[in-house]
Each structure stands twice: as structure tokens, then as C-alpha cells.
């Protein structure tokens, strides 16, 4: 293993995070606080408790998931797209680094960054609502697996994208709607039966449900289904990344 090489990529990516510290940390914290004010305080006061949990607390896991998903995709996507865009990727490709090591550097850094943001949002939420985490181990496990698998997705998008528009398109047009419709701000049991069935096809539902279970012990789908879903998604992303490096897709000519 070329540990110095992995560390070089990791450090470089983290440096970018701290270089734009305002954009990296302040903006997610600010937007989350706004969600708390609008959904938690203003609207939430008119929504009854859900299975014994106040609405303000109920949305915390969904809010963290929303941000972690977006940040993982964005960080990893930009991390690999930008060197492709400005041409510095040649150096990484000509270095004695295996594809696994390259992915470990970029995806590892992206996942760590979004994990940090997720934890910052969790800390922020303590200022707004009372939360107790029933299963801290599973909470961290879900958060990490989500961060890693969506950073892998971001990496794939960053390799696939031919321009900045495409890079932003998938998160905007696919991921955000899936998160909003995946029970981040409500329990699917509140939906009419037809939409409940439709929701079962939304992969994000399984993540949010499992993550919320680790907080409050309540879930829309069985916890094993959530675990299988996130593991399946991760394996699928790994398979695509493996294929990218095997064929050199959009990286090598």
C-alpha cells in the first residue's frame, strides 16, 4: 500500500475543506438552523407528537441525512471532477497508486468531511430540541455507511460529469427529491396507502428510517431492511467504481 500517496490525496482534500471553512461548515449549520426554525418551531408547533417524539426532534435524523447525503456527493464529486477539469489528474493517474488507493484518498476525505458536518448539525440540534440517542453505535454506523456510500456515488458522478452543470444535476434533480420524499420530515405512515407503497421504492427511505430508529427506536421499515439497503447500495457503487478503473472510463484514454 502506498500510504504516503493516500495521505497526500486525503490531506489535499481536507485542506480544501478548511480553506473554505465558511462554505464548508457555516453554510450547512445555517441552513439546518433555518429548517429547525421553520419546520420545528413554526410548523412543528401545529403538528402533534409522532409516536411520542416531538416533531422538532423527529426531523433531526432526516435533516442530518439530507446534509450528509448532499455533502458526501458534492465533496467527492468536486474532489475528482476538479482535477479532471483543470488537468492535474494526470499526476494522480501516473503515480504508483492503485485504483483502491486513489478512491480511499478521495472518498475517505469526502466521507470524513460530511461525517464532521453531520456531527456538527447534530450538536447544533441540541440547542433547539431535546434528543436522546437510543442506539449510539448504530447511529454512528448508519452515518458512516451513508457518508461512505454516497461519497462513492459522488466520485462516480465526478468521473462521469463532462461539465459543472452535469456535476450539479444529479444531486439537484434526483438526490434532493428522494431525500424529501424519503420521510425526512414525516413518517410514511402519515401518507395515504398508495403513496406508502410508492415510498417503499425510494432507497433513501431505508436510510432515514434506519437512522431515525437509532435515535428513537421507531422505524418505517424493519431495521434489517435498512441495513441491507445501505450495504447493497455501497456494493453497487463499489462495483461501478471498480469498473471505472478497470476500463479507464473518462479517466484514461
Amino acid at each position: 500500500m502506498n500510504w504516503y500517496g493516500i495521505a497526500a490525496i486525503f490531506r489535499f482534500e481536507m485542506a480544501r475543506f478548511f480553506r473554505s471553512i465558511i462554505q464548508s461548515i457555516v453554510s450547512p449549520v445555517l441552513s439546518t438552523s433555518l429548517y429547525f426554525v421553520v419546520f420545528g418551531a413554526a410548523i412543528g408547533s401545529r403538528i402533534p407528537e409522532i409516536e411520542g417524539v416531538s416533531y422538532g426532534a423527529f426531523i433531526v435524523p432526516g435533516l442530518i441525512m439530507l446534509t450528509v447525503l448532499q455533502q458526501s456527493i458534492q465533496n467527492a464529486g468536486f474532489g475528482i471532477y476538479f482535477p479532471r477539469f483543470i488537468g492535474t489528474i494526470f499526476e494522480v493517474l501516473s503515480a504508483p497508486l492503485s485504483s483502491f488507493e486513489i478512491v480511499l484518498g478521495y472518498v475517505g476525505a469526502a466521507a470524513v468531511k460530511s461525517l464532521m458536518i453531520g456531527l456538527i448539525i447534530l450538536a447544533t440540534s441540541f440547542f433547539f430540541v431535546d434528543i436522546t440517542i437510543q442506539h449510539p453505535f448504530w447511529m454512528i454506523t448508519f452515518l458512516m455507511m451513508t457518508a461512505i456510500s454516497f461519497a462513492l456515488l459522488g466520485f462516480i458522478l465526478g468521473v462521469w460529469a463532462k461539465n459543472f452543470e452535469q456535476l450539479n444535476l444529479v444531486p439537484l434533480l434526483i438526490v434532493t427529491p428522494l431525500v424529501f420524499l424519503g420521510g425526512s420530515f414525516y413518517s410514511v405512515s402519515m401518507l395515504p396507502p398508495f403513496w406508502q407503497s410508492v415510498s417503499m421504492f425510494n432507497p433513501v427511505l431505508y436510510l432515514v428510517s434506519g437512522f431515525r430508529w437509532s435515535f428513537f427506536g421507531m422505524a418505517d421499515v424493519p431495521i434489517t431492511a435498512s441495513l441491507i439497503a445501505i450495504m447493497g447500495f455501497m456494493v453497487a457503487c463499489l462495483a461501478i467504481v471498480w469498473w471505472i478503473f478497470r476500463t479507464g472510463y473518462r479517466l484514461k484514454v
Binding site: N2, W3, Y4, G5, A7, A8, I9, R11, F12, E91, V92, A95, P96, L97
Partner: peptide, 9 residues
Amino acid sequence: RFSRGLFGK
């Protein structure tokens, strides 16, 4: 420094 690390030094 980045380049040196990338090549495993």
C-alpha cells in the same frame, strides 16, 4: 510536497 507523497516517498 503533494507530488512527493503521491509517489510514495
